[in-house]
Amino acid sequence: MNLCYCNSQKQFKDCCEPYIKGQKNAPTAEALMRSRYSAYATHQADYLVATTHVSQRALHSKANILLWATANQWQKLEVLNATSTTVEFKAYYLDSNEKQHIHHEFSTFAQEDGIWYYVDGEYY
């Protein structure tokens, strides 16, 4: 049994994988955020670029996304709060020196033509 990286307790194939593979669109901002975490954990930089709002894509290069995704070991996602357009979460990871880190973010999302996109985030 391969549990999803997003900590939903569902199997990856029944949770974030269909979004990452482009088989389905994430139905909510929270689902998109969870799938983006799973994409970092599985090094799917194309998905991360594609799900970043077009107004912000120039700020996020695929090479830098892939570097950060592969340089860290993604351990756990904790969703603290979610509304229809925002998600506050903590992403736990180990860096290349196996030092523990917590990425605490308040993210904003926008929906266009029925598709959710990551817009930006504030870090704590």
Rank of each mutant, 00 (worst) to 15 (best):
T42V: 07
E122T: 10
L77T: 06
T52Q: 07
M1S: 12
Q11R: 11
N7S: 12
A58V: 08
K21P: 00
I20T: 00
K62R: 15
T85L: 09
W116I: 01
F109T: 02
H60S: 09
N7W: 05
E78K: 15
Y19V: 00
H104G: 09
L77I: 02
A50L: 09
V87E: 12
A91N: 11
F109P: 03
E98S: 14
R36H: 07
Y5A: 00
I20P: 00
L48W: 05
W74S: 07
Q73S: 13
K10W: 00
I115V: 14
K76S: 13
Q75T: 03
Y37Q: 08
T52V: 09
K21D: 07
F106I: 06
N64S: 14
H43V: 00
G121K: 07
M33L: 12
F89M: 09
V79Q: 10
N81T: 14
W68L: 08
G121V: 01
A31V: 00
N97K: 15
A63D: 13
V87A: 14
Q9H: 10
L94G: 09
A58L: 12
G22F: 06
Y93I: 03
L66Q: 13
I102L: 10
D95K: 00
V87Q: 12
C6S: 07
Y124N: 10
Q75P: 00
A31P: 06
Q11A: 08
Y19G: 02
D120A: 10
D113W: 01
V49Q: 07
T86V: 02
S84T: 15
S107C: 04
Q9A: 12
Y123F: 10
Y124F: 11
D120N: 13
I102Q: 06
